[in-house]
Simulated assay, not measured.
Amino acid sequence: MSGAISILSLVANNHAANIYIKYASTLVGRDKACRFAQYFSRFLVYLLSQRTTKPTGTSWLTALTKVQGAMGTTRKIMRSGKFIDFLNLFVKSLATKGEDEVTKFLNSVHKLGMFVFMAFDTLGLLGSLSVVTLRDAGKVGRTAQRGWMVAIVCQLLAAVYQLRSLRMREVDLERVRRHVEKSADVMGDREIAVEQQIIKSQAQAARRQLVVAALDLTIPVKGLGLLPINEGLVALAGTVTSLLGAQDVLAKITV
């Protein structure tokens, strides 16, 4: 008995177990895990539907389709009511002072788009559960997708704008660096090195946001039928951004 307790204690105090506990305790962490399961199942469904005709493959196809639907519904339930948070963030973003006007505008529209997405997403969920009666459930879903698409486009444009601004800062910093070299200013060299590191870090984050936004944009674009994007590519894009999101959560809890 004591041996079993020791083993359980060892497992409970394991570093990996502690990381899992911290990850699972966050709502965003659970959402990213469910999102990965949802889009990876969607990707496997696409592959099986393209290649499999055997009865065994059909059973897998049915099971994975159910997983995809269950994960999608679970995520809808977890984020239901979150539109209130985004409405609050939208109002706060309008009152923000001292921020670049372009960044402020894109940030505000992003929050507004997410509010529309979450509000109509919750309304669609209530309709599917027969809590409310919807005249046109399809229209509600399309409105949610449009709100999400607007929010993603704003993220993409914000990343492009930030990269442009950082590039301009780099040019100005290079001009200052040449002046400092001529004057042999040691303190100036150190300050420039710190600023270069900051710019590098911010540019890396902006490029990551750009990639994630570009990949995620395929999902509502496909859902709204705006472009004939391959179903497998959409599912793969969702899988990749889910993993990147999970990585962000892990980075925060392992600091």
Rank of each mutant, 00 (worst) to 15 (best):
A235R: 00
L156W: 15
L125R: 03
A213E: 05
Q155P: 01
L236K: 13
G57V: 03
L156I: 12
G127K: 09
A184P: 00
H15R: 14
S59H: 03
T52Y: 03
T239D: 08
V176T: 11
S9V: 00
R177S: 12
T254V: 13
D31F: 12
L210I: 06
K54D: 11
G223P: 00
R30E: 02
Y20A: 15
Q197F: 05
D185M: 07
R146G: 00
K82T: 08
L156M: 14
L224S: 04
V211G: 02
Q204F: 14
R142Y: 07
K82M: 11
A205D: 11
V131R: 10
A70F: 02
S59C: 02
F90P: 00
V194G: 02
T218G: 01
T53R: 07
V240F: 05
G223F: 04
Q197D: 15
S41T: 07
F90A: 12
S108W: 06
A12W: 11
G29C: 01
M1G: 12
S183Y: 00
L125F: 10
G245R: 05
D100P: 07
K32W: 10
K222M: 04
L157A: 10
V28A: 07
R142D: 15
K104T: 10
V131G: 02
K104L: 04
M168V: 10
F86N: 09
P220W: 02
A246V: 00
L129H: 04
Y161L: 02
L125Q: 05
L243D: 01
E195V: 08
F105D: 06
S128E: 15
T65F: 03
V45L: 03
G223W: 01
G147V: 05
F43A: 15
L27N: 12
M114I: 09
V176A: 13
F105A: 13
F86Y: 13
V116K: 06
A206F: 02
